[in-house]
Computed example of a mutant assay.
Amino acid sequence: MVLKVIYELVKFLKKPDDSRIQLTPKEKIYFLLRLFVFNAVIFLAFLPLLVLVAEETESEFKRNTDYTEAIVAIGAILVMPVVEEFIFRYFLRYDRINPKLISLKKWNAVFPWLVYFSAITFGAIHLFNFSFSSNSWLLLPALVVPQFITGLVITFLRVRLNFYYGILYHMLWNFSFFMVIPFLVDLIPE
Rank of each mutant, 00 (worst) to 15 (best):
L101G: 00
F175G: 03
I87K: 00
I102S: 02
S131A: 13
S176T: 14
S133P: 04
A40E: 07
P81Y: 00
E8Y: 08
Y116F: 15
M80W: 12
L157V: 08
G166D: 11
S131K: 13
P189W: 07
A73C: 00
F130A: 09
I125K: 10
F91A: 08
E58L: 09
V110S: 05
R93L: 12
V159C: 05
R34F: 15
I71Q: 12
D186Y: 10
Y94Q: 01
P16Q: 09
L184C: 12
F117C: 13
Y164L: 08
R160S: 11
V51E: 05
Y165F: 10
T68H: 07
F177N: 04
S59W: 09
I97L: 12
Y164S: 05
V153I: 13
Y67M: 07
K28Y: 10
K106E: 15
K105A: 14
V53A: 14
R158W: 04
I6K: 08
Y116P: 05
Q147V: 00
F132V: 03
W137D: 01
L49P: 03
T57C: 04
F88N: 05
N129L: 15
G151M: 10
L114K: 00
E27H: 10
Y165V: 02
T57Q: 01
R89M: 05
L138C: 01
I77L: 06
L157G: 01
L138R: 00
S136C: 08
L114A: 13
F36Q: 01
P141Q: 02
I167C: 00
L49C: 07
K106S: 14
I6D: 01
L9W: 14
D66S: 11
P81C: 03
L13V: 12
I21D: 08
I29N: 07
L78D: 03
W107E: 06
I120D: 10
L92N: 05
F38E: 07
F88E: 02
W113T: 12
L23Y: 15
T65D: 12
L50G: 09
P146W: 09
F117I: 09
T121S: 15
W113I: 13
E69F: 03
V37G: 12
F122E: 06
K105G: 10
R93D: 12
F156P: 03
L172W: 03
L114I: 09
W173M: 10
P141W: 07
W107S: 07
L50E: 10
L3D: 13
R63H: 08
F130T: 04
T150C: 11
V37L: 15
K14G: 13
L35V: 08
S59C: 02
V10Q: 10
N108I: 07
L114R: 04
L33C: 13
A76T: 11
F117K: 02
T65W: 02
L104V: 09
S136Y: 04
V37C: 13
V37N: 11
N64I: 10
H170W: 03
R34H: 14
T121F: 15
L35N: 15
V110Q: 04
I6Y: 11
S133K: 00
L52A: 07
L35C: 14
E55N: 06
